[in-house]
Write a protein that binds this DNA or RNA. Structure first.
Lengths: 253, 253
DNA sequence: GGCCTATACTTGTATATACAAGTATGTTAC
DNA sequence: GTAACATACTTGTATATACAAGTATAGGCC
């Protein structure tokens, strides 16, 4: 057991970051890296108290919050365990399409249709809460799953928030991966629709006539500012959104 | 200020329910009832310590969890406030379609197409994790927004979990309202698709030819048992799913 | 007026301690 | 063998206390 614990040498009690938070992060990292596998028993609170030399209440808070986040399961009287399947916190995660495709065992490729600086249309100006006449970066790309188009991405990015966006090579890294690496959103808004694609979309996604698309739009905020507004369009017969998650009392309203 | 507080006479320190939980519930009730309105300042932790005669850490836990749930906002050094807009915990809430429609200012009506006991098909048997040959309740209904059909509901219910489901009058109360009143789900699974409706669906939803539908399926668990499996079909041009919510670190994975 | 400071109040975090209650295991009594 | 019991370990909750740090206000100084 101690072998599991004494690797916690990254807790700094005088760091500005709260201790409970450092502990959460450390455990999360170990789960993400696979060092602690699903179902595996975690050190008990008392083990951690000894190993980290912090109060049990601090450990308890860290573990409790990890439970709420769905990363671990705790059983009264038994112990804490790495959750079998991490709970999805929302129907739509901010997941990189490349990862999503590759996790399903297929191969991902993407084609950048355009990456340019444009004047914001009135609609986009309002949606992104910008001043009139503002310029924006715009990316259009298609993502392929095993050579078959799966997603059409049409993204606007606020240059004030992401000045280097336009200089990136999005054939090497997806825009989602880039943005996730650059910032952590404060707030998100999602909308999901069923639409009939126009001619161009149909061609880009190589869809048959009359087939519908699932269309997801997302706005993402950081510091009260809309950073990106993206429309993701999927062929209805090739894609569905889904999530399974445990509920706590506040997820029902 | 004290007028706000001394109504907390419903805290029972010897009740089996944890005190922090009772406090959460009490505050939640006051917000839900409108007694405490959005933006209003809550009593401070110390106020509540005096009023409820509990430890500040207990109050703190209740308020902290309410913050995570998005019901209140706390500002370091200032105080706690009822959140302006309650955060949506998931894209798809378990919200009663009747409420959703009426909250938008329209009127809701519903028509029950059928409510019967049926043998589970192999597909449904598997989806609901039942034994072969099991019987199920099945409800089919259409929900109208201002006379215009908005949702086609096709629901299977496990009689083992909800024996009285078949005896309800779903012209008076929606199935969602009934089920929410009967139990609190442990777990949910959602899937969202874009589909082309079949002839019958098109007629029930009075849709034009070629228009797509947004289709949501949901399975709901209680005590390791699938209680209900429902398919909700919406006209693509009349409905979209959406949610805006604040993100905490664990909602991104 | 404008600026600084002291002060009071707020939330955020950390600790030590205590008891309750659930789970598993080993032991004893029958 | 089995049932009852004791024990050790676990998480769950509650408390009292302490200090840090952010916010607003009042008062004094220039």
């Amino acid at each position: 057991m101690s072998a599991l614990i004494d690797c916690f040498d990254d807790i700094n009690k005088s760091a500005p970051e709260p201790i409970y938070h450092q502990i959460k992060q450390a455990i999360e990292d170990r789960i993400a890296s696979g060092e602690w596998r699903a179902g595996q028993k975690l050190p008990s609170e008392n083990d951690l108290v000894v190993a980290l030399d912090v109060s049990r209440m601090t450990i308890n808070r860290a573990l409790r919050e990890l439970t709420q986040a769905g990363l671990i399961k705790r059983v009264h009287g038994l112990g804490s365990f790495v959750a079998e399947q991490p709970r999805h916190a929302s129907l739509i995660e901010l997941q990189d399409i490349a990862l999503e495709i590759e996790n399903s065992g297929a191969s991902h490729a993407s084609k950048v249709l355009s990456l340019e600086s444009v004047y914001a249309s009135p609609t986009v100006t309002e949606l992104m809460q910008l001043d009139e006449g503002a310029t924006l970066y715009r990316l259009r790309a298609v993502h392929y799953q095993d050579e078959l188009p799966l997603q059409l991405e049409s993204r606007y990015v606020n240059p004030a928030a992401m000045p280097d966006f336009i200089n990136q090579d999005f054939t090497r890294m997806t825009s989602t991966a880039y943005l996730l690496q650059q910032f952590k959103p404060d707030e998100m808004e999602h909308r999901v629709r069923a639409i009939l694609p126009d001619q161009q979309t149909r061609e880009l996604l190589t869809m048959a006539d009359g087939q519908p698309c699932l269309q997801l739009t997302r706005r993402t905020w950081k510091d009260e500012q809309v950073v990106t507004y993206v429309t993701l369009t999927y062929p209805g017969d090739r894609y569905e959104l889904g999530a399974r998650y445990a509920t706590d009392e506040y997820q029902l309203r």
